[in-house]
Structures are given as C-alpha cells and as structure tokens.
C-alpha cells in the first residue's frame, strides 16, 4: 500500500515538472471562469435585490465534465505508455512493486492532480455563495461535485488502463479520446433503434456517461446505480491496466 502512495506522489509531482499540467489547469479554469461569468451576469438582479431561486452552480460542473472528456486523455496518455517506451517499467517491475500497486499509484497520481484543479474551481462556488442572496444550494453543490469527482476518477482509470496497452502516448491519447466520445455520445445512438424494445434501449442509455450525471448528481439527486456505474468504470480501467502490465511480464 505504501508503494501506491510513493508512485502516486511521484506522478503528481511529475505533472508539475512539465508545462502540460499548467496548461491544462489554466485552460480548464479559464473556460470555467467564462462560464462563471455568464452565471454571474444572470444573477446580477439577485445580487442587487435579493430573493429568487438560489444560484445554480451545476452549470459550471456540467461544463467541467465536458472539458474533462477532452483533457483526461492528455493527462493519462503517458502514464504507463511512456514507462514502457523508455524502459523505466523494467526499473519499477524489478523493484518490489506489485503490478496493481503500480497501476493504482499511477491512477491515483493523476486523480490527485484533477482533484487539485477541482479544488481550485471550488472558488466559483464560494464566490457565488457570498455574492448573491440566497446563495447557492449547498446540498446540490455537494452532490454535483461528488458526481464530478466520480466522473474524473472513472475517466482517469479508463485512460490509465489504455495507456498500459501502448508504447506510444499519441496512440494512447486517441484511443482514450475515441472511447470517451463513444461513452459520451455515440453509445446513446443505438438506443433509438429499438423503439419497440425499451429494455435494449435502456442498456445503451445506461452506458452513456451523461445519463449518470446531468440530471442526477448535477441536479442534486443521488442514485446508487450512478455511483455503481462510475465505480465499475474505475474497476474496469484499473483491471485493464493491471492485466496489460502483467501480460507484458509474462509474454
């Protein structure tokens, strides 16, 4: 277990050793700041006169989730593929580190990075809360952030798993991105082909990421099935990673 933390810590520090992490964090926060501006404009009246409904911070996290689909592949692409390419994997796997510790450590490192960015974006919620009266719906905000954290964890786990399959980070990037686009958009399309059999349609709809966030977590409604959905994605991603690392060793 200590190894997981050691690897995660190195990975986290490593993000800040390259400009990529700063560029992604700055880009994310800049775009989300723009969304926040729009929200603020909408609540000027509230800020002046008070009353009305609470400010909906969910709109920002909705966008955060869209942006994650495009940035997570860049964050995870080199996690394991680069270790493979440069041969440092040999160094790690001849040290007393188990395969799952390596993969979970890598994932945890990237997860901590995204958590830091999510932490910074929390400023939006705090500002909105104090700027307008009656502030924001805090329960809804909590649920929205919880959902966002689960989405980030799931996407990062899938990206980590795919990274382990490749030697080349660009290949890992595009495969990860393609998977995310499928999970985000494309997998919902077949659902409309089965109008007579809603059960099949439901299967496809269940696989779509947005259906587990947009109208549930982000609307302040928690379903166990949504939590299970994200936890299973995390499990699938990490399992893929461990299997890929393991298979390299046994080839």
């Amino acid at each position: 277990m200590k190894n997981i933390w050691t690897i995660a810590k190195r990975e986290y520090d490593n993000y800040f050793a390259s400009p990529l992490a700063y560029v992604i964090a700055a880009g994310l926060l800049f775009l989300l700041g723009g969304i926040f501006l729009i929200i603020l404009q909408g609540s000027i009246q509230q800020a002046i006169f008070g009353g009305g409904t609470p400010v909906d911070i969910g709109f920002i996290n909705q966008w955060f989730y869209y942006l994650l689909l495009w940035t997570v592949p860049a964050l995870t692409m080199r996690l394991i593929s680069d270790e493979n390419r440069t041969g440092t994997l040999e160094l790690l796997l001849t040290a007393p580190v188990r395969d799952f510790e390596l993969v979970i450590g890598k994932w945890l490192g990237s997860f901590l990075y995204i958590l830091s960015v999510i932490g910074v974006s929390f400023i939006f919620a705090i500002v909105a809360n104090y700027l307008a009266e009656p502030g924001i719906d805090q329960v809804k905000m909590m649920s929205s952030y919880l959902g966002l954290i689960l989405i980030a964890g799931a996407l990062l786990a899938l990206g980590t798993g795919i990274s382990a399959l490749f030697n080349n980070q660009i290949a890992a990037f595009f495969v990860t991105l393609a998977l995310f686009i499928v999970l985000w958009l494309l997998i919902g399309i077949p659902a409309s082909f089965f109008p007579s059999n809603p059960a099949i349609g439901d299967v496809f709809r269940y696989l779509q990421i947005g259906n587990h966030y947009e109208s549930t977590f982000n609307a302040g409604v928690l379903y166990l099935s949504d939590v299970i959905y994200f936890l299973s994605l995390i499990a699938i991603g990490l399992f893929t990673g461990v299997t890929a690392v393991d298979s390299r060793r046994w080839r």
Binding site: A17, S18, T88
Partner: peptide, 27 residues
C-alpha cells in the same frame, strides 16, 4: 539490485529525488 542494459531513468527528475523514490519503493 539491478542495472538494466538501457539504464532507464526518469529524465525529468532531479537525481536525488529519483534515488529517494527508488529508496522509498524499497522501504
């Protein structure tokens, strides 16, 4: 203790941080 042929190291790391990382992995 193993020194692989290609001497794989993390180029973006500082020497002592890298060695500390390896030391920590070995508890």
């Amino acid at each position: 203790g193993y020194l692989p042929e290609t001497v794989p190291l993390y180029n973006e790391m500082v020497v002592q941080d890298f060695l500390k990382f390896m030391a920590e992995l070995r508890h």
